[in-house]
């Protein structure tokens, strides 16, 4: 079942067409990495899902209910963590969570128990000073606590790690990994290593539409190019190999770097067996022969350039 469905979403700011018929589906219990360059429309999409921005076309459903602009009822299913969550600096963490709980309509006893549980989850259980004195990482962790307060079915995180140092990033990613299975997480970012680390589904937004979508394995399979790296014993052997007629035609890309040769073939006419045959035929014994899987960064770069 899909917890979030976006259909033909359109949004422009003046002449800048940010979303051009975006279609996206987020399956329940996924950690969904929503990837794209800065300014490509990730935050706009999330704000439309939250009913904070009015789309110029298309529809969004959360848990099967249509999102409407303004005070949308679908937000009772959602927890939201902005990229830089802003709090009332004069409040203490428990006071802020109490305010959020009262707005959500939780019972006082539930607010208290849930607040303690979440503050422990995000490592702020012993902190009772005013939020104004918090570091960015602490604010981000408190942001996760407030977003999870009403036990949402969908947690939307807008670049939660982009402003954090490596330790803060690791803490936030650990927390998001820990809630997997209980809550679906949509996690927008342009930090690809974060996505590879925790996300099981990935979508790449480019030019207002999804350029890639699926699990990392599916995307790698869709975008697979036969790519190999061969390290020869000498530079002369490597150079000689690049001269072969079979490798010097359209669709085959050769990158020679000293003794190392990288071969990519878009049309599939060169595969591992073919290369092994060529090496054998020309009596070449490489030191290393490796089939290369495209990384998410390779795929992302290919899509956005």
């Amino acid at each position: 079942m899909n917890i979030l469905e976006i259909s033909d979403l359109q949004m422009s700011f003046g002449t800048n067409h940010v979303l051009r018929g975006l279609n996206m589906e987020v399956p329940e219990h996924a950690i969904f990495g929503f990837v794209g360059r800065n300014g490509v429309g990730k935050t706009t999409t999330m704000k439309i899902v939250l009913g904070l921005l009015k789309a110029q076309g298309g529809s969004v459903t959360v848990c099967g209910e249509t999102v409407s602009y303004g005070a949308t009822r679908t937000n009772r299913h959602i927890g939201y963590l902005p990229d830089v969550p802003e709090f009332y600096g004069y409040m203490r963490p428990r006071e802020y969570l109490k305010l959020c709980g009262e707005i959500t309509g939780l019972a006082p006893a539930k607010i208290k128990s849930r607040s303690e549980e979440l503050l422990e989850l995000v490592g702020l259980e012993g902190v009772n000073r005013r939020i104004g004195g918090f570091s960015r990482g602490m604010k981000q962790r408190l942001g996760i606590a407030q977003a999870l307060l009403n036990e949402p079915r969908l947690l939307i995180c807008d670049e939660p790690t982009s402003a954090l140092d490596p330790i803060g990033r690791r803490q936030v990613l650990d927390i998001l990994s820990a809630i997997k299975g209980r809550t679906t997480v949509v996690f927008s970012t342009h930090i690809l290593s974060d996505v590879e680390r925790i996300c099981d589904h990935i979508a790449v937004l480019e030019q207002g539409q999804l350029a890639l979508s699926g699990t990392l394995a599916e995307i790698q399979k869709q975008q697979r190019r036969n790519s190999f790296r061969i390290r020869f014993a000498t530079e002369a052997e490597a150079t000689a190999f690049t001269q072969l007629e079979e490798l010097n035609r359209g669709g085959v890309e050769l990158i020679l770097d000293g003794k190392e040769l990288q071969i990519s073939c878009e049309d599939g006419s060169i595969d591992g067996q073919k290369l092994v045959d060529l090496l054998s035929e020309h009596r070449l014994a490489p030191e290393n022969f490796e089939a290369m899987e495209p990384t998410l960064e390779d795929l992302f770069t290919e899509v956005v350039t």
Binding site: A71, R76, Y80, E86, I103, A147
Partner: peptide
């Protein structure tokens, strides 16, 4: 500052 965003998304 954006302090209302959290609360509005909670249904305020």
């Amino acid at each position: 500052k954006g302090t209302l965003i959290n609360l509005l998304t909670k249904g305020l």
